[in-house]
């Protein structure tokens, strides 16, 4: 079962986070590097193919943040994957702004919160874990066209419109594929 694997994996990374926070454990940081850096680099390279410089820069930012902020991480508020994902996402937005893709005077720092500590509680932790298990299982069942558009939006950082232009598929079709996918993952809470 995939879930058993995951149950064994997650506590280890969590333990490492606490060792980094409380014992300044360098070996734990190295294990977090091994797990997250390949994912952070893949996340960057899929948005900007060939841009190893950006990938390394963002990996560095995330690792610094893990080292400096591990004590602020609260597992009752967000899973470690989510915490690292939002840091990597924010670092990527920041990088792209500084390097001209967005051409803007707006500073993204106050527009995306790293993680919300709002209503952190053990109940929420359990609920999030259930949500994530559902999302993980449902992602595997998604038809490839729906998974493709989700990957474009989340991993490549494309808007629906950019996805539509790139795949040469009408915008309405892209929107409905994303919506269908999100419905299957049961992440839409209203309407």
């Amino acid at each position: 079962m995939g879930q058993t694997n995951n149950d064994e994996r997650t506590p280890t990374l969590l333990d490492d986070m606490f060792s980094v926070a409380n014992k300044r454990d360098q070996a734990a940081l190295a294990r977090l590097f091994d797990h997250f850096v390949p994912r952070i680099r893949a996340f960057c390279l899929t948005a900007q193919p060939g841009s190893n410089l950006m990938a390394d820069d963002i990996a560095q930012e995330v690792l610094i943040r893990i080292w400096n902020k591990a004590h602020t991480y609260n597992p009752e508020s967000a899973s470690l994957n989510t915490w690292v994902f939002t840091i990597a996402r924010n670092a990527r937005i920041d990088y792209l702004r500084k390097n001209g893709r967005y051409q803007t005077g707006i500073d993204p720092d106050f527009l995306w919160a790293d993680d919300e500590d709002e209503n952190a509680d053990p109940f929420r932790e359990a609920q999030q874990k259930r949500d994530q298990d559902t999302i993980r299982a449902s992602l595997k069942q998604l038809p490839s066209d729906q998974r493709q558009v989700l990957a474009k939006v989340y991993l490549e950082g494309k808007t629906h419109k950019e996805t539509s232009e790139e795949l040469n598929i009408p915008l309405g079709t892209i929107k409905s594929r994303v919506r269908l996918a999100l419905n299957k993952l049961t992440v839409i809470i209203r309407r």
Partner: peptide, 18 residues
């Protein structure tokens, strides 16, 4: 926040060698 969970799952793809 729920929509971030989707990103987090795609991001943490186990197929990526560690």
């Amino acid at each position: 926040h729920k929509l971030e969970l989707v990103g987090a799952e795609l991001f943490s793809d186990p197929a990526i060698p560690t």
